[in-house]
Write a protein that binds this DNA or RNA. Sequence first.
DNA 1: TTGAAAGCGATACCAG
DNA 2: CTGGTATCGCTTTCAA
Lengths: 334, 334
Amino acid sequence: MKKTATIKDVAKELGISVSTVSRVMNGLDRVSPAMRKKVLDTARRLNYVPSLAAVSVVKKQTKLLAALLPDLTTPLYASILEAFEEAARIRGYHTLTVLSHGSHEEEMRFLDSMVGRSVDGLAIIPASPAFSDYTASLKPVVFIERPGNGDGVDSVVVDNFRGAYLAAEHLISRGHTKIAIIASEREFSSGHDRVLGFEQALRIKNLRIRPQYICVGGGTEKDGYAGAFRLMNLDDPPTAIFAASEPLCRAAVAAIHDLKLRLGKDVSLVGFGDSDFARTYSPAITVVSRATGDMGKIGANMLIEKLTSLSPSVGQQVSLSVRLIIRESVWTLG
Amino acid sequence: MKKTATIKDVAKELGISVSTVSRVMNGLDRVSPAMRKKVLDTARRLNYVPSLAAVSVVKKQTKLLAALLPDLTTPLYASILEAFEEAARIRGYHTLTVLSHGSHEEEMRFLDSMVGRSVDGLAIIPASPAFSDYTASLKPVVFIERPGNGDGVDSVVVDNFRGAYLAAEHLISRGHTKIAIIASEREFSSGHDRVLGFEQALRIKNLRIRPQYICVGGGTEKDGYAGAFRLMNLDDPPTAIFAASEPLCRAAVAAIHDLKLRLGKDVSLVGFGDSDFARTYSPAITVVSRATGDMGKIGANMLIEKLTSLSPSVGQQVSLSVRLIIRESVWTLG
DNA sequence: TTGAAAGCGATACCAG
DNA sequence: CTGGTATCGCTTTCAA
């Protein structure tokens, strides 16, 4: 491991002061072109790069952003982080990634460890509903995918209500009246909003909301499978299902398959969230698609804006629009 | 933003020296229990947490690991990073994530930016074959998923050769003799090894390797689709296909579907790399599964071992075993 | 235009 | 056991 040279090494090598080297490295003026060149040359020759650690001690900023998210195997989160990292890097920031695995304890541990770890700002995809405003007083924070519940915290979320509304509306427009929903309550706000949007569509179209068609429970594939199974075994089963998350959608498909029902014929389906699965399954599945990448990108930009802006806007809430991707899993009735 | 207190604040508050505060915070002995308690209390009260930036200036270590990978939308990479982060965090390290998006320029830029950014070690999932030994002299490095090509660099990879061998062998054991492979050459070493393993199995079983069945090209879904399409339109098409990567497998399935062929009946298929898609498609797809999480975990542990060990072993090569998950996409011939 | 010196936040050695 | 102080690598007035 060749050890990196320090600013002193460069200064000594040239018999000049460290101040000058510092000026050159920071691209400040007040330094002669000749000197500048000499410094730059030996810096390169000695393989000198300023230590960010030392810089951040004095400058009190690290060009480091921390991102907290539940996991990376959920494509949604991976996609958000990917866009976040890219947007951050473009603006000169690096991204520190921490996974909470859905545990609120881990989330709190993260917050603690980020106080000392000098990061400039925090991006959080909460796993638990209970994010106190402890966060707000700490460092600049932006919540992604779910709103934080402190006062004046920024967040960028997807329009879950409207997404669910679109899904139900689509089903209704295709002649369905017996429509069920499988949603997760564990997803707190987002899951809840999807149920509301769904019900709103039925209400507006004057369809009756049958309690036995509202299947709200866990968010795992297992839960979804059980839910779909129960729904299709009802005396009067629905003709269409809205599966309000990717795993639930996958599970519904599996249940339908196992029940020997033909997807898109015996029963129609709309999912929430696009995926390779929905895209390539046969029949391909109609879904509500959210701009997942945008969430990460906008999140990063909002955060950096807060860091650099002199009058940081606070309490900003961005809600991203969704769109319906119509494929082959919905049958036209009547 | 309440600004964090410094060690001086704590010392001043108690009218003691910073040395003592430092000792307490670092859990050193040589400090009276009474004093220890007093310091701890006021530290908490003042919301004091040692600045890691300052610490790393003097200690020359940051407890920060940098991970470079092509992207996160590839589930394999996301899975590796997830396991890496967790293993690292358990051992007290944080993970800095940087994405190369497959560009070697980005990879080099990463290396450069990591010199100044004080990170203790580097984990790299190379996107390009050309990783000079520039890396070796920089900081402790471990390569994941593909071997680095410097001398004495550590790496943890999957046994691609054996995986492909298993896939072909399985197909052969089910009576297939006309077996094709769709592989990517862009995946350099890993793709190459898979072709070799595949051919080796045929050779050992005394099957002829027909050049027109060896379909080596790009790694995208588009490439895979074209490949499968071509194969099945041959005068004498294969009865089985080994798709040597996840996207290629998805593409092959799509092509087979579009050709109105029945997967698992008209044509058999084995994929490389498990996925939700392979698991939930109908028929479910037989695949070679690699322990993706292990790669990240082992990678992190190897790296940390190098950092902490007094006599770091170098040039270590770990090759992870694979296994075949038999599902429904392979038909037993006559 | 350049240099000297103070300071950032923390550690560690040396005294007492 | 506790305090003083040099030091880490770098930035930033303030003089020259």
